[in-house]
């Protein structure tokens, strides 16, 4: 069982994710170059944070056309687990695997902070191992993390119980305080906070560990 970590030109959290998975959690992980189309050796995929293709045009707009993402669509259709973190979440929305879009923070600031989050849905594997009603702390670091969608999409997300985590004190103006969502099947999670930066107690938080562990759990 191995997790693939996609490396785009401009990804900068790819090595953090690998360190968190392998060194902190003992989960086998390997890099996956954006031009590769072969996902056969991987059981789950992470799209890491960073600035894929320099975030030119829009965050995730160019990355969406990377060859690896053609294969990712089939991977998701077959039930494979995919976690998009920060820029990875932006890529997933541009790709259409998750609804909505991430836009510029309400107050324009790039926000680098640790935030309190409430778990909104325990429906999927990603959060099934957290206590019911548990609030968690995770780091965020983004300039364009304001989740935006139309009211029909928001209602659909709520009806399908696909809003995974919400900000307790909305830092960026996201609709519905949304920090992370899943697809209807629950195998795709996109989130702005960085679980890989909260997997070692030396950093003060380990609330991200269970999310990463669920990449390979069924």
């Amino acid at each position: 069982m191995t997790v693939g970590i996609v490396v785009f030109p401009g990804s900068n959290c790819d090595r953090d994710v690998k360190w968190a998975l392998k060194d902190c959690l003992g989960i086998p992980a390997d890099f996956l170059w954006h031009e590769s189309r072969d996902l056969t050796k991987f059981d789950a995929i992470v799209l890491p944070g960073g600035f894929s293709y320099g975030d030119y045009l829009r965050c995730g707009a160019i990355a969406r056309f990377a060859p690896v993402l053609d294969s990712l669509i089939d991977f998701v259709k077959n039930g494979g687990k995919v976690l998009g973190i920060c820029n990875g979440f932006q890529v997933l929305t541009e790709l259409g695997l998750l609804p909505g879009a991430l836009t510029r923070n309400k107050d324009l600031h790039f926000i680098c902070n640790t935030v309190d989050l409430s778990i909104s849905s325990y429906r999927t594997d990603w959060f099934a191992n957290y206590q019911f009603g548990e609030n968690i702390k995770l780091p965020i670091a983004h300039g364009e993390g304001r989740y935006q969608c139309n009211s029909d999409t928001l209602k659909q997300l709520e009806d399908e119980d696909s809003i995974a985590i919400r900000y307790m004190n909305n830092p960026n103006g996201s609709m519905g305080d949304i920090a992370g969502i899943t697809n209807k099947n629950g195998n795709v999670l996109g989130m702005m906070p960085h679980p890989e930066r909260a997997t070692d107690s030396l950093f003060g938080q380990i609330d991200g560990a269970k999310i990463l562990k669920s990449l390979l759990s069924n």
Binding site: T103, K106, N150, G173
Partner: peptide, 13 residues
């Protein structure tokens, strides 16, 4: 252009 319903913080600034 951003859709009219979408906040444009850069425009506001």
């Amino acid at each position: 252009s951003l859709r009219p319903s979408v906040l444009d913080p850069a425009g506001e600034a």
